[in-house]
């Protein structure tokens, strides 16, 4: 089977998407990618010259609201933190992203 999708490419994408993968998963996903890309490649058969891409299809435009604070959609600090695994002094705790070395 031709391998359009290398494990190296899948590994790169996994890094971009922040998805931890085992070696076996890497292999499987590379195969699934091939299957999916095989199906979706038919789009090149359609003539799309002079066609604007459709990002929205039901015709609504420019839905705006007044620029005011809406208290009824605000969560209290307690509620906001209620589902976090790690908090400290009313803050979410995040993994370290800056390193000294």
């Amino acid at each position: 089977m031709s391998s359009l999708i290398s494990k190296k490419l899948v590994d790169e994408i996994a890094h971009l998407a922040n998805i931890p993968l085992s070696e076996a998963e890497l292999q499987n996903i590379a195969q699934d990618f091939e299957e999916t890309l095989g199906v979706i490649n038919n789009l090149s058969e359609i003539d799309t010259k002079n066609i604007e891409p459709a990002h929205h299809t039901t015709g609504l435009e420019n839905i705006l609201r007044e620029d005011i604070v809406e208290n009824d959609r605000m969560l209290s600090q307690k509620d906001s933190l209620s589902q976090a695994k790690k908090t400290h002094d009313g803050y979410f705790v995040v993994p370290r992203i800056l390193h000294n070395d």
Binding site: V10, I13, A17, F33, T48, H55
Partner: peptide, 26 residues
Amino acid sequence: IMLGTHALRKGYADKYYLTAQKVRAK
């Protein structure tokens, strides 16, 4: 998630995502 990340990557977005949105318009 990963296939979507691929379809939106620089160098691939035109081939996949933009083409798909054009066929959607069709």
